[in-house]
């Protein structure tokens, strides 16, 4: 699904990513972990060419991104969703307008917009929030809107840059649950960059450990599911119920 071949990225004298090759299978939830400055975020940004590699090729979904024209690259990006640590919603747009933005960019017929936006908001459980502005939402809700926005054009791949790193443990579990169900129900390949071990353990099928801009090791995992991390009993019950829903 995603193949990086010998990609390298320099920032001035610093090499952020040095000759990394890796392959991500369709349908995987693939983790990339490492210490700060290990190059994991840069590696993720290379996958949709938010950063242009100085060398190497990037292939996604059968297309070699590194040899596409600007226009072709923009079109390809419509089916590569991305979410961020800071959510990056447009604060002056309502939830609805944030989610409809990618549909407009992709030139989808106007008549289909409303139904698709509501479908995506329903998926993340926020359809009643469509007229609110991001400032009126909690962190977890913002991230769910960002996920709905990333899903709007029915992406084949979802790139997640530290998606839970500014969220509390409960909200982290909630967002991981949403990502897991996107993977299972919609068959979207997910790449998660994080520094949180638990996130990798709970949802990833495969993980690459990065160090100093290079792949240190890649290993297969059996995802442990999203466990309870709080010691409040009501929260355990809540989580168990939620887990039941996701599986159903």
């Amino acid at each position: 699904m995603i193949t990086l071949t010998n990609v390298r990225k320099q920032f001035g004298p610093d090499t952020a990513v040095r000759d990394v090759s890796l392959h991500i299978d369709r349908g995987d939830i693939y983790g990339i972990i490492g210490a700060s400055g290990a190059g994991k975020s840069t590696l993720l940004r290379l996958m949709n060419l938010l950063e242009m590699p100085d060398a190497g090729t990037v292939e996604i979904d059968g297309a070699t991104l590194t040899s596409l024209s600007r226009r072709q690259l923009r079109e390809k990006r419509h089916v590569i969703g991305m979410i961020f640590q800071q959510f990056n919603l447009v604060a002056n747009k309502t939830v609805y307008d944030n989610v409809v933005a990618p549909l407009k960019l992709a030139g989808r017929p106007k008549a289909t917009h409303e139904a698709r936006v509501l479908e995506c908001l329903h998926f993340v459980g926020l359809e009643t929030f469509k007229d609110k502005y991001p400032a009126q939402l909690s962190g977890g809700q913002k991230q769910r809107v960002a996920i709905a926005r990333a899903l709007a054009n029915e992406p084949h791949v979802l790139l997640c840059d530290e998606p839970t790193s500014s969220l509390d443990p409960n909200t982290t579990a909630e967002i991981l649950g949403v990502l897991k169900s996107i993977n299972e129900r919609l068959g979207v390949t997910i790449v998660i960059v994080t520094h949180e071990m638990d996130v990798i353990r709970q949802v990833c099928d495969r993980v690459t450990v990065m160090a100093d801009g290079a792949v240190y090791e890649t290993l297969d995992l059996v995802p442990g599911g999203v466990p309870a991390i709080d010691n409040n009993p009501a929260w355990f019950v809540d989580q168990l119920k939620k887990a039941g829903e996701t599986d159903a």
Binding site: L50, L73, K76, R77, Q86, N88, L89, V90, P102, L105
Partner: peptide
Amino acid sequence: PRGVVEAAVSMGASIKDVIFK
């Protein structure tokens, strides 16, 4: 915020889209 521009580009926005939308 830089991230807003980055999100726009990741969605396939052209320069014109980034400016106006």
